[in-house]
């Protein structure tokens, strides 16, 4: 087993455990714990990105998710300051069982269906600059200029929308 493989396993297990901690009730009863587990998961994910030479995206991942989005989550959680009574007990119903079954089935089918296709995929040789800020920036302003500009409009409208929705209503 190569060193890269070992590193991948560590990162993958960390990411999955973090995600599980968010989702599974015993750990995620308190949303603050869930948020912290999510940060852990995302940082492991960022490591996976580095392994895939996506340096710039990895940095963005840490900055945006671990920094901005998580801060937002934590702020809201503290703003709402949910009491244990307000934090509802898990509730089971037939359609939740159906959902879990479906999700697992989808995951299983996709995974098993793809593995023997993906075996034939071999990593391409890439330049040293692959995935650094300069190359991603070049792609953004050359190939995806419209999408890039559009995402800025999206963010702006999200800001305005969030302010409008969360604002205190008079009357």
């Amino acid at each position: 087993m190569s060193a890269e493989m070992i590193v991948f396993w560590i990162l993958a297990i960390g990411a999955v455990l973090g995600a599980l901690a968010v989702v599974l009730p015993p750990f995620g009863r308190n949303p603050l714990h869930g948020a912290l587990a999510l940060v852990v998961s995302f940082i492991f994910m960022a490591g996976v990105y580095v392994q895939l030479s996506a340096f710039f995206v990895a940095v963005i991942q840490v900055l945006v998710y671990a920094g901005a989005v998580m801060t937002l989550f934590v702020f809201v959680i503290m703003l709402l300051n949910l009491t244990p009574e307000e934090l509802a007990q898990p509730k089971y119903s037939w359609y939740k069982v159906l959902s879990v079954f479906s999700a697992l089935a989808i995951g299983f089918i996709v995974a098993s269906g793809l593995t023997h296709v993906l075996v034939h995929f071999h990593a391409a040789s890439i330049p040293a600059t692959f995935g650094n800020a300069a190359s991603v920036g070049g792609v953004l302003v050359k190939k995806w200029l419209f999408v890039f500009e559009f995402s800025s409009i999206l963010l702006l409208s999200a800001i305005v929308g969030a302010v409008l929705i969360a604002r205190k209503r008079r009357s």
Binding site: S99, S102, I106, I109, V110
Partner: peptide, 15 residues
């Protein structure tokens, strides 16, 4: 979440 269940079931059927 009932809608989510329907959505996942639909996705499964599609796959």
């Amino acid at each position: 979440q009932a809608y989510v269940a329907a959505f996942l079931l639909g996705a499964l059927a599609l796959i």
